[in-house]
Simulated assay, not measured.
Amino acid sequence: MTAAALGTATARAQGRDTPLRIARDVAEDLAADAIARDRAGRPPVDEVARLREAGLLAALVPPGRTHGVDWRTGCAVVHEIATADSSVGELLARHYVHAWSGRFYATAHRAAALERDTARDQLLWAGGVRTAAPDGGVPDLTLTPLHSGYLLNGRRAVDTAVTVADRFVVDALCAVTGDVLVVRVPSGRPGVSVEPARDRLGQRVAGAGRVAFDRVAVAPAQVLGPRPYDEESTAPFTALAAPALRLALCHVGLGIAEGALSEARDACPGGRLPATGPDVLLAFGELASAARTAAAVVERATAAMAGALEAGPHIDADEPADVAALVATAETVTAEAALHITTRVPELADAPGLDRFWRNARVLTADRSTAHRLRDIGEHYLNGAYRPG
């Protein structure tokens, strides 16, 4: 390798390492008062301020010439934060994937502008783009065309940052054409109002709630592009949008499992069982194996997703189905490991706050059916097909 090439490789490695070093410092800070903040359950105003001050909101955008991080680094940052505080990890995971929305749905020029603005202004993204119409077929968000732009109306449940987001990205049905369009809306726009969720079981600091749009003006430049109707009309790269979000959340689930196990290990000598007893050794061996197995499966899916995202519009038409099947496997294994580990650790250690890991795991995995994912995996294994959702 030439000196110039070595310098370039070193610079790239340092660029990846810097966000991770920052994330470790932020994670240590978050871990110090995680129990108190979970009990308070307040909107994540202070948490977002910590992320913004550390530069992580700006860092976690798609990689560009002067900003952003690659997929594997972004997921590693999410994992690091989630191990200390899974609510903040979920907030950061969704922000990162929402920042990819321009590449999934818009033109390259519009996506680049969105990412530059996000990095420059440290914008926090929230919202949600659905992969299909809700049950019953009644849209919760509609767009009414004007002579220039649209009016957006309706309400949408948001999983994170509802009161602190700078931008919302959502999909809405055009009342005239029937097209489903993905739009971005500044949170401070007239007609936008939010309502935080109260007394959540878990992920209490993530900032979940509902956002309402009452005749909110949407300019043409705020329309990223159409959301495809079905699998057949979905471009291969756009098909990565849904599994990318689910995979980012796998890193949050893995963080919950590893955080619970680590905290139980630290508390075990003063807990209910002797740290050198055969029963506790067997229990921790089982749980550590489950966590490491999940980590290996998630890493394989992360590597596959990273390769697919790097391919961009040149991605092979069959690759999204293969990646989605790996993500579904990661979801299944991670959910089972997180729920099993967080159920067992309170039996092994007597430490305050261990219950929060179980509550967080339950809420994070509540809307993802293991049976549904296993059927998807089986369909891909038998037929080579995969239905995203």
Score class of each variant (00 low, 15 high):
199 D>P: 00
207 G>M: 00
310 E>S: 13
216 V>K: 02
369 S>V: 05
13 A>W: 09
235 A>C: 01
270 G>H: 05
124 L>M: 14
73 T>F: 04
249 L>C: 04
286 E>N: 06
327 V>A: 08
380 H>R: 15
370 T>G: 05
177 T>I: 04
278 P>W: 13
221 A>N: 06
99 A>S: 12
251 H>T: 07
72 R>G: 13
309 L>D: 01
2 T>F: 09
88 V>M: 06
156 R>N: 14
5 A>Q: 13
193 S>Y: 00
33 D>R: 14
62 P>E: 13
46 D>G: 06
339 L>T: 14
267 A>D: 03
154 G>E: 00
191 G>K: 02
265 R>W: 05
365 T>M: 00
111 A>E: 04
155 R>M: 08
290 A>N: 01
304 A>C: 07
347 E>D: 14
361 A>K: 03
366 A>V: 14
141 L>D: 08
108 A>D: 11
57 L>C: 05
302 T>L: 03
333 V>M: 11
191 G>F: 05
305 M>I: 02
327 V>I: 01
144 T>K: 10
258 E>T: 08
306 A>C: 02
162 V>W: 05
205 V>I: 14
234 T>E: 13
213 F>P: 01
371 A>M: 09
360 N>Q: 10
18 T>M: 11
152 L>I: 08
327 V>E: 11
24 R>I: 04
128 G>I: 11
315 I>N: 07
385 A>V: 15
17 D>R: 15
134 P>G: 10
221 A>T: 09
148 S>A: 14
221 A>K: 03
127 G>R: 08
129 V>W: 08
339 L>E: 12
290 A>P: 02
43 P>Q: 00
317 A>K: 07
102 G>Y: 06
17 D>Y: 10
350 D>V: 05
139 P>R: 01
270 G>N: 05
344 R>L: 15
267 A>H: 00
196 P>A: 03
6 L>D: 12
130 R>G: 09
281 L>H: 09
160 T>K: 04
156 R>S: 15
100 W>M: 12
306 A>Q: 07
271 G>D: 01
365 T>W: 00
27 A>Y: 02
356 R>I: 05
183 V>L: 00
117 D>G: 11
326 L>Y: 03
80 E>A: 08
162 V>K: 09
258 E>G: 06
104 F>R: 06
259 G>C: 05
157 A>W: 02
326 L>H: 10
106 A>R: 06
198 R>T: 04
281 L>K: 11
70 D>T: 12
218 V>R: 01
149 G>I: 04
275 A>E: 10
33 D>L: 12
40 A>M: 13
1 M>Q: 11
124 L>E: 13
258 E>W: 05
359 R>T: 13
326 L>F: 06
145 P>L: 09
261 L>N: 05
346 P>A: 14
317 A>F: 04
329 T>Q: 15
272 R>Y: 15
23 A>K: 00
22 I>F: 02
